[in-house]
Amino acid sequence: MANSYAILIAVLLFPGGLFALALGLTLKGADRRVAARLQGRVGPPLTQPFFDIVKLGFKRTMVPDTASETVFLAAPLVGTASMLLAVALIPIAGVYNPDPQIGNLLVLLYLLAIPGVALMIAGSASGSPYGAIGFSREMALMLAYEGPIVLVVIAVALRTGLAEGHFPTFSLAEIVHYQQAHGAFVLDPVMWPAAAAFAFFYPANLGIVPFDIPEAETEVLEGPLLEYSGPALALFKIMSALKAVVVLSLGVALFMPLPLTGGVGLAAWVGQQLVLVLIGVTAVRVSRGRMRIDQAFVFFLKWPLLLSAASLAVAAYYTAGGAL
């Protein structure tokens, strides 16, 4: 029973739930603030995303006549729930180790796809033509970026597993432990292609500017989110905040866990995420324009796929050769 309580705490309080939500919203606030500074503006307060969520809580939720009401209202709930669970799956180096009962890296890959699916369902259930366009764009983008991320994850699993002398391991905890002992993968030239492919993946998954095609505000009026208002929209905002934490901490766990423990480890982990957001999200978002869906599709099938395939081959060759 104690075990199930621990899981519940991991999902609802730390590192999932409240902690991840607060972290995700703060990251978003920092992103907006720094983006404003880069553009020569003052920008909103750091806590602005919290205000937005509270505000949306006071608004009315409207369901369009043409929408299928149950699906329309369930989609944000499913997306948020999947992300709550996903945060609890990712270890924080030296601070938190997920219960192996909840799942491993493969479960995480499936959970990572759910917010995109929830958005697609939301867009198609809303009965709005813009939602439908958002749906089709989200689907095309997902098809393009899901392949490389799977290859990247397999490459990391192969590298860790073969180096430890057994099958590829899909336990994130084991991957993190290996890196804490032998140095982070981001410093290992063998894993650079994988890290580069992951760097292309996460703006697409988070829906930020070069790849925010499904939710393009100026083209399809936020696409799937067009018909949402009030608490349902707040749930989507919470979902994307949690997703930012999930994707960033996955990147940290796969490539750059630090050999630290306790409070220092936690602070360093938060710091790593902040740096990743400011460099990888804010600077890119401010300096780049949005791609067209066909450009993004071709781009993902070209570079990240090539990089991830190369990383898989290199990791397999190197580690197998090292083991032999």
């Binding site: 500074r37 020569g40 503006r41 003052v42 920008g43 600077a283 401010v286 300096s287």
Partner: peptide
Amino acid sequence: NFLSLFARNLRRGPYTE
């Protein structure tokens, strides 16, 4: 070019009234 623009904006501070 955008990097020098960023550096200038960060150094100079906001232009906002």
